[in-house]
Amino acid sequence: MMVYALGFAAACFGLALLMNLWRLVKGPEASDRILALDTMVVNVIALLILLGIGLGTAVFFEVAMLFALVGFVSTVAYCRFLLRGDIIE
């Protein structure tokens, strides 16, 4: 039963990634695009954890942690660049 749940969850997060991509392409403002990228990072973290459950290893937790770190830093850096015209003042 867990196999079906894993497949369902992976399909859901893949569909969510496609929706985020649509908002990333269409989004009328820069803030929408940043938000779409941030949500894409979160969905990719979920997919990585699902992959770790499926393969039965704990390696993907470190990968997910790194993804979360890089996603947070890139979002904040892009926002600061748009707000201040500079990242590190």
Binding site: M2, C12, T39
Partner: peptide, 30 residues
């Protein structure tokens, strides 16, 4: 059963969140 339940729950929440991202009308609600 419990693992399947939480997997399906989390997947539905993630899907709803991304659906709201394309469905909601203006940036602050998005």
């Amino acid at each position: 059963l419990a693992v399947s339940l939480f997997l399906v729950l989390g997947a539905v929440f993630g899907l709803v969140g991304s659906w709201g991202l394309i469905r909601l009308p203006d940036p602050m609600t998005r």
